Amino acid sequence: MQDNFFARKRLKTLLYCALLLAITVIAIVITNYDVIKGFTSIPKAAEWAFNNFYPNEKALKRLPVIISNLTETVLVSIAATALAALFALIFAIAGSHTTGAGGVFSFVSRSIATVFRNIDVSAWSMILLISFGQNVLTGYFALFFGSFGFLTRAFTESIDEVSSSSVEALRSTGAGYLSIISQSVIPACVPQLISWILFMIETNIRQATLIGILTGTGIGFLFSLYYKSLNFSAASLIVIVLVLAIFLIETVSTYIRKVIL
């Protein structure tokens, strides 16, 4: 019996691997991708980057402008995440099985979150670009909508994990709905909520760089400007500063998670 179970499991694994290999081969054939040329070009690309993609003295003079644009990108990411977290918490409470009102209202809350979560931030940028044009507001709303969908789902699951016994205990004492939310549910899941918010801030800073290329703002636009003008030294400095900033933010975020969890 056990041997048959493992045999079927191995067979399924082999079938999945064969299917994945077949899809890869079909994709290579359709796109006319030269696998050998792709791998042999890696050393040449690394050599070009080593010879051209590094900051020089002239690029360092642009550091204040780079820092200013990076600061704008970080602040927009934090602002969009903070407001999205506030709205996400409201929708999560309404849609949660533990605290939700149930019925149509709960269904609508979860449905809205699902729709927003399944539309990528880059897609939101292109949609909003038509209405708002290339400005900071476009990037802000794109990050806000993307964060709202993700955080609503994450907050809902965190709230659902709260023990229903404490909620029932408060209800038995005659506590009102808002009292149950503020005295039992929220305090119990605050560490998880903060952890998700920090994760979203990290993610948004990375995404904001790419969004900036579309919206013409922030550090992303500056990188695109330098790269298209063949100023590879300044573009490489942006990459270095951005990587250092992300590492710093991630280190602070990890420390905060260790403290609260």
Rank of each mutant, 00 (worst) to 15 (best):
Q2L: 13
L244G: 08
T40F: 08
S253N: 09
D120M: 10
L128R: 07
K228T: 14
L137G: 02
I260S: 10
V108W: 00
K9T: 12
G133S: 11
S184I: 02
T31R: 09
R62M: 13
I194R: 06
F150I: 14
A85Y: 07
V252A: 15
G139W: 10
N204D: 08
K58D: 15
A154D: 02
I28L: 12
L225K: 11
L198N: 05
F155V: 09
I159N: 05
F141G: 01
L128Y: 05
Q207S: 09
H97E: 13
F39D: 01
I127D: 00
L230W: 06
D160V: 02
L137W: 05
M1Y: 07
V35M: 11
S77M: 06
L151D: 02
L129K: 05
L237G: 09
Y54S: 15
L83V: 14
L11P: 00
S195W: 07
K44E: 07
P64M: 04
S179W: 00
V136Q: 13
S96F: 02
L86T: 12
V239F: 04
I90G: 12
I112E: 07
I112P: 14
F247L: 14
V241N: 02
F223R: 03
I201D: 12
I186K: 10
F144M: 13
L210F: 01
A92V: 10
F50D: 00
R171I: 07
I23H: 03
V74L: 13
A113M: 04
P55I: 05
N204I: 03
L225C: 01
L244H: 03
S147Q: 04
V29T: 13
K58E: 15
A80P: 11
L214G: 00
F50H: 06
R110W: 10
T24K: 04
G139H: 06
I159L: 05
A59D: 12
L75W: 01
Q183L: 15
F105T: 09
L11N: 02
V190G: 09
P43F: 07
P187W: 00
L137I: 15
G149Q: 11
K258N: 15
S253P: 14
P191F: 00
E72I: 13
I246N: 13
R8C: 01
V252D: 06
T13C: 03
A80Q: 07
L14W: 02
L20N: 06
F148Y: 12
F5C: 01
S125W: 00
T81N: 10
I42W: 03
K258G: 15
R206D: 13
F116K: 01
I42K: 02
L178V: 13
T138H: 01
F6M: 05
I201C: 11
F91P: 00
S131Y: 15
A175T: 05
V190W: 05
S195C: 02
R10E: 14
L222Y: 11
L237Y: 08
I181A: 11
E161L: 08
